[in-house]
Simulated assay, not measured.
Amino acid sequence: MVTNAKYWTALGDPTRRTIFELLVDRPSSVSGLASVLPVTRPAVSQHLKVLKDAGLVADTRSGKERIYRIDPDGLAAFRAEIDQFWVKTLAAYAQLVEQPKEDET
């Protein structure tokens, strides 16, 4: 299984995960996010750039601001990767559990 490290890297940072979770609840501007986070607007912008480069968020212009939201296509791709990881992990676990123990043979 080949993983796409960009998703894991983007969400590996606690602040980016918090931003991502806030955007799951509702779209927001940089200033809106910065108002509820203990980081500056430039820091929020940098975190959003990483999330956007990973394909997890998208933005649209609204007047002078950009409104950020979860990118459903990027989220679906990440979800598919997670699902593939779990299918492979559970199959390996099932194979291990179903193997006869050495003292049972």
Rank of each mutant, 00 (worst) to 15 (best):
P27V: 00
L56Y: 04
L51I: 05
D73W: 01
D71Y: 05
V39A: 05
R17L: 14
A77D: 11
R17C: 10
P38E: 08
P38H: 07
K88L: 12
Q95N: 12
S31L: 14
E98K: 10
V39I: 14
R16Q: 05
E21D: 14
H47Y: 07
G12Q: 04
Q95Y: 09
T3F: 15
T40L: 00
A76G: 02
D13E: 09
D59H: 03
S62C: 03
K6R: 14
Q99K: 13
L90R: 15
V50Y: 00
M1I: 04
R69M: 09
E102S: 15
K52W: 09
T40I: 04
T60A: 11
T40G: 03
K64W: 09
P38K: 01
Q84E: 15
T60E: 13
A80E: 15
P100Q: 06
L56D: 04
L48K: 08
P27W: 02
D53L: 01
K101S: 14
T18N: 08
Q99I: 02
M1W: 09
T15S: 08
K88D: 14
L96N: 11
G55A: 04
K52L: 07
Q84G: 12
T9H: 11
L37E: 01
A5E: 12
A94N: 11
W86S: 01
T15A: 07
A10N: 05
E21Y: 09
T60K: 00
V97R: 11
G63W: 08
F20Q: 01
K52S: 11
Y93F: 12
F78L: 09
A76C: 05
A92S: 08
T18W: 04
I82R: 15
V36P: 05
V87L: 13
T105E: 13
L37C: 04
E81F: 04
Q46Y: 06
S31Q: 11
L96C: 02
L33G: 02
F78G: 01
V2F: 14
V97A: 12
V57M: 10
P38Y: 00
F78H: 06
A91S: 13
D103T: 12
D71H: 10
D71G: 02
V30F: 02
T3I: 14
V24M: 13
R69W: 06
D71W: 03
Q84D: 13
L90H: 07
S29W: 00
G32W: 08
A77C: 06
L37M: 04
T60H: 07
D71M: 00
T18P: 01
T89S: 11
R41V: 07
E81W: 08
T60L: 06
A76E: 12
Y7H: 08
A54L: 06
A94L: 08
Y68D: 10
I19S: 00
K49Q: 03
N4E: 12
K101F: 10
E21V: 15
V57E: 07
T105P: 08
V2L: 13
L33Q: 01
D83V: 15
N4H: 12
E98L: 14
F85D: 05
D73C: 00
M1P: 06
T9P: 03
A77R: 10
L90M: 14
A92V: 04
D13V: 04
F20E: 00
V87E: 15
L51C: 06
R69G: 10
K49P: 03
I82N: 09
V24L: 15
V44C: 00
L11P: 03
P42Q: 09
D83H: 11
L51Q: 05
K64T: 14
T60Y: 00
R16G: 01
A34D: 08
